[in-house]
Every structure is written in C-alpha cells, then in structure tokens.
Lab assay of single mutants.
Amino acid sequence: HMTFVALYDYVASGETDLSFKKGERLQIVNNTEGDWWLAHSLTTGRTGYISSNYVAPSD
C-alpha cells in the first residue's frame, strides 16, 4: 500500500469519511475511484474515505 501524509486537518462530513489531522500518516487502500480515496490511518487505526487533495506522498 502507498503511504501518504495529511497536509491539512480534515473533519469527516459523513459516516464513510475519515477524519484526520495534519501530519497524520495514511495508507491508501483504494485510489481508483476518482478524487475520494479509501484510506487507513496509521495513527488512529480507522478506515474511511479521504479527499486526495488533502494528502501528499510521504516518500
């Protein structure tokens, strides 16, 4: 899985979204569905959809 880092804080707007904080590391589970990616937070252990605009590759 690809690992990304959050560029900004994000508060989930629905049950399927994932809230995260700036600097949080996220593993991308599925990024084939446009701008919203299914991600797993390595910080909180939660999984949900994130906006690809809010993250950048961590490598």
Rank of each mutant, 00 (worst) to 15 (best):
G48L: 01
L38D: 08
L7K: 05
T3D: 08
S13H: 11
V29Y: 09
L42W: 05
D9N: 05
E33T: 12
V55E: 02
D17A: 09
G23D: 04
G48H: 02
L18A: 04
V5R: 03
G14S: 14
I28C: 12
K22V: 07
V29I: 15
L26E: 00
G14E: 12
F20C: 02
H40S: 08
V29D: 06
D59K: 10
D17V: 08
D35C: 11
T32H: 09
L26A: 00
R25C: 14
V55C: 07
S52W: 06
R25Q: 11
H1Q: 12
E24K: 00
G48C: 04
S52D: 03
L38A: 01
E33M: 12
W36G: 05
S58A: 14
K22C: 07
T3C: 13
V11Q: 11
A39T: 03
G23A: 03
E33I: 11
Y10H: 09
A12N: 03
A12I: 06
K22S: 05
S51G: 07
N31S: 12
S41K: 00
A39N: 00
D9T: 06
S19I: 05
R46S: 07
Y8A: 10
A6G: 04
Y54I: 07
H40G: 02
R46L: 13
D35K: 09
L7C: 10
G23S: 02
A12G: 12
T47M: 10
G48T: 01
T32K: 11
L26V: 04
D17S: 08
E33L: 13
F20I: 05
I28E: 01
S51K: 15
G14Y: 12
G45S: 04
H1T: 12
D35W: 07
G45D: 05
S13L: 12
A39Q: 00
Y10L: 04
D9W: 07
V5S: 03
Y54V: 08
G34F: 06
A12R: 04
A6F: 02
S19G: 06
T32S: 13
D59E: 12
T16M: 13
T47L: 08
A12H: 04
G23N: 04
T44F: 03
S41M: 01
H1Y: 14
K22H: 04
F20L: 06
T3H: 11
H1P: 12
I50M: 03
S13F: 10
I28L: 08
S13C: 14
R46V: 06
A6C: 08
A6W: 02
S52K: 15
Y49D: 02
Y54T: 06
D59I: 12
S52C: 11
F20E: 00
S19E: 06
T44K: 01
D59W: 14
D35N: 10
L42C: 12
K21R: 11
S52T: 06
S58R: 06
D9G: 04
L26Y: 00
W36F: 10
P57F: 10
L38W: 09
K21N: 08
Y8V: 11
K21V: 10
V29K: 06
K21C: 15
G14C: 15
F4T: 03
S41I: 02
A39W: 02
V29P: 04
L26K: 00
A12T: 04
V55M: 06
A39V: 14
E15S: 11
T16V: 09
S41W: 01
Y10F: 09
E33V: 11
V29W: 13
N30Q: 10
R46W: 07
M2L: 13
T43C: 12
A56W: 09
E15P: 14
T44S: 10
P57H: 09
W37F: 06
Y49L: 09
S19Y: 03
A39G: 05
N53A: 14
V29R: 06
D9L: 05
T47H: 06
G34C: 07
T32C: 10
T3I: 15
A56S: 10
D17T: 07
N53C: 15
I28R: 06
A12S: 09
Y49Q: 04
I50G: 00
N31L: 13
N31M: 15
F4G: 02
L7A: 04
G14M: 11
D59V: 12
L18E: 01
D59R: 09
S13I: 14
N31T: 13
D59L: 12
D9E: 05
S13E: 12
E24Y: 01
G48A: 03
D35H: 10
A6D: 01
A6P: 01
N53G: 11
S51C: 15
I50R: 00
M2N: 11
H40W: 07
T3A: 06
L18K: 00
N53S: 14
V55T: 03
Q27N: 07
G23Q: 01
N30S: 14
D59Y: 13
A6I: 03
H40N: 07
T32D: 10
L7S: 03
V11Y: 09
F4C: 07
D9P: 02
M2T: 11
I28A: 10
G34P: 12
G34R: 08
G48R: 01
R46H: 08
G48F: 04
R25A: 07
Y8F: 13
Q27L: 15
